[in-house]
């Protein structure tokens, strides 16, 4: 179980290799990579976070996933600072013996991260900066895991 908050980019292949190195009991690794969406006016995205609480929240998300699925290993990497459209922003890896647990755990960790990890996005465009509003759809996505 590894969590990291960093300004630099990440390499999904290297992260996957690190996750599975030295073991042959893993049957599935699901990865999710989030990218900075540009589309029109956004020229830059600034990611702010709450150091300390962020790491605690990410560890909490992983431990919730471990309780719920057969999660053998996981990695969460989230970037902060200024990012350009098209750049990688978040990586979630979930490893399990079979694919369904890996798919579900990765999905769950992303849904939790969206609404429970203290990150905030600010978009910069021609009209200046604008803090991204939270989406109700993200809250709804989290609720489905309570059922």
């Amino acid at each position: 179980m590894a969590i990291r908050v960093q300004t630099g980019d990440f390499d999904i292949s290297a992260e996957t290799a690190a996750l599975t190195r030295g073991r042959d009991d893993i049957g599935a690794v699901v990865s999710f990579t989030g990218l900075v969406r540009g589309g029109g006016d956004v020229s830059q995205m600034e990611l702010e976070h709450y150091p300390g609480m962020t790491e605690n929240a990410l560890r909490d998300i992983e431990s919730r996933a471990v309780k719920r699925w057969n999660l053998q290993a996981s990695t969460i990497v989230h970037r902060v600072g200024p990012l350009q459209p098209g750049e990688q922003i978040v990586l979630v890896l979930a490893a399990s013996p079979h694919r369904q647990d890996a798919f579900d755990a990765a999905n769950f960790m992303m849904d939790y991260l969206k609404t429970r990890a203290p990150f905030w996005k600010k978009e910069t465009g021609p009209a200046g900066g604008k803090w991204v509003d939270a989406r109700d759809a993200d809250d709804d996505a989290l609720l489905r895991w309570d059922a």
Partner: peptide, 28 residues
């Protein structure tokens, strides 16, 4: 968040060392 735990507005801050205010989170 009080001492880095999310709480409601009516939560106690007695004995707390850190209180943080922020908008709804928008990471990912």
């Amino acid at each position: 968040a009080v001492d880095q735990q999310m709480v409601d507005l009516d939560a106690s801050i007695i004995g707390a060392s850190e209180v943080a205010f922020f908008p709804p989170m928008t990471g990912g």
